[in-house]
Design a protein around this nucleic acid. Structure first.
Lengths: 238, 238
DNA sequence: TTGGCTAATCATGTATACAATATTAATCAC
DNA sequence: GTGATTAATATTGTATACATGATTAGCCAA
């Protein structure tokens, strides 16, 4: 039995039965966000059902949830694949982040305390460490978690959940359009941001977050790779 | 069979088979948004399965989708009910609308054309008509649709979908905390807004939308009714 | 009547069986 | 060898059966 199975079963017996689904959902979701499952990867129901030792019924429920969060794409009778975001979707996601994440900064600056700031600093620290040590997946996750935690500090659960979705999708976007090895967020950006927030300077934090997000978006190479019916004439010079 | 034929056939079958679920989903979703199904109403799987003549499997899929959109609340082993939003959730939803809908106005003002403005005017017109004629459900739907259509005009599908969710939840909030007969949106607000947008005055539109949303929120009576263990001493004067 | 116990009923959670469809492999004609 | 046609295989879609847990009803005792 794999680790994932063991964890799922143990927790199931300890907690209530419904918790198992949540764990499996997180396992798949994490794998996608951390880019261990890459965009375009096929997710067969049977295979997942075997890996997690539950029936296809439970897997389908989880796949549908992931589909509504736009992490996987469900094509009727052709199954599930990890979503490959289009250039348009990427633009929408980053525009949305500009509007929401920047808009939240003043409120976060008002609410943040020394404890929360310390927690954020710790996350930023671990992110840099993961980057230095070449732990790509951990770094990606910590970067996304940082932005989500920030949004949660606004106290608005609805907006925080929305930001969480946007960050997950951003991870997919980076996987498709980002340069390998280059994570979206610059090393010290997050630390600088915490400084402005802790100083209560909401407007400064807002402006910095705006630049931060623009920098990430600018680092992408937005070329739609057309993997269906490539024009050979065009490629090999007709 | 050629590729083109295969694609054509697949697309055809998609429209047939999967469309039924979508129709049923809309039927339930509409009933909730239009307040024909009121917050707290029980949604039994068997009953729904019988009404729509499909098996419980399909119903569960739909209920789970509605649960993720927070229109229904799924309690393990106790089934589904139309969500009864808390006061906190209501505040979060309207704060989110302030941030997002207002933030979109400048872009909408830039993009709106005469055709789009006419469409919006027609919706506003039909909304007023429905209100006059006492068609509560129709008025609620048209009001929500107006806000959603507006968000769609921004060109950002991600944000538009988010606004759609917020408007659906707002309908639930109005059902619980609103005064009966008094719809959230004032009669001529929507028309005024279109005027600002068509004039290309994004900032004016933004400010107006802000006041508009604040007015709706202010019209609510935010008293959490405790339906479990009501204090009889308190109620009947101890 | 109130309180607590047990049994019966009902509703949901899960797995599995079967049907429908897509994909792949094999065959044949040109 | 290329292309088309058919057979096979694989994979998802749907319904149903059974298990599990919740609610209600009935009963008896205090």
């Amino acid at each position: 039995m794999s680790d994932v199975q063991a964890v799922a079963k143990r927790t199931a017996s300890e907690k209530e039965g419904d918790e198992r689904h949540e764990i499996i959902y997180r396992a798949v979701s994490d794998a996608i966000v951390e880019q261990r499952l890459k965009p375009g990867a096929r997710l067969r129901e049977d295979a997942l059902a075997e890996v997690f030792a539950i029936s296809r019924t439970g897997i389908r429920k989880i796949l549908q949830r992931l589909a509504l969060e736009q992490l996987v794409t469900l094509t009727p009778r052709r199954g599930a694949r990890v979503t490959r975001p289009t250039a348009n979707e990427a633009k929408d996601v980053f525009d949305a982040r500009q509007l929401v994440e920047c808009g939240l900064m003043p409120e976060v600056a008002r609410r943040i305390g020394t404890k929360e700031a310390a927690e954020l600093r710790d996350m930023a620290h671990r992110e840099r460490k993961a980057l230095r040590e070449g732990q790509q997946s951990a770094a990606i996750r910590l970067s996304a978690d940082f932005h989500v935690r920030l949004a949660q500090l606004s106290g608005n659960a609805t907006l925080a959940e929305f930001v969480e979705r946007l960050c997950s999708r951003s991870s997919l976007i980076l996987a498709v359009y980002g340069h390998p090895g280059h994570l979206g967020c610059e090393s010290h950006d997050h630390d600088d941001l915490i400084g402005y927030l802790e100083a209560g300077n909401g407007e400064r934090a807002r402006a910095f977050m705006s630049r931060h997000l623009k920098a990430i978006e600018a680092s992408l190479s937005m070329v739609e790779e057309e993997d269906d019916v490539p024009d050979l004439q065009d490629i090999f010079g007709g």
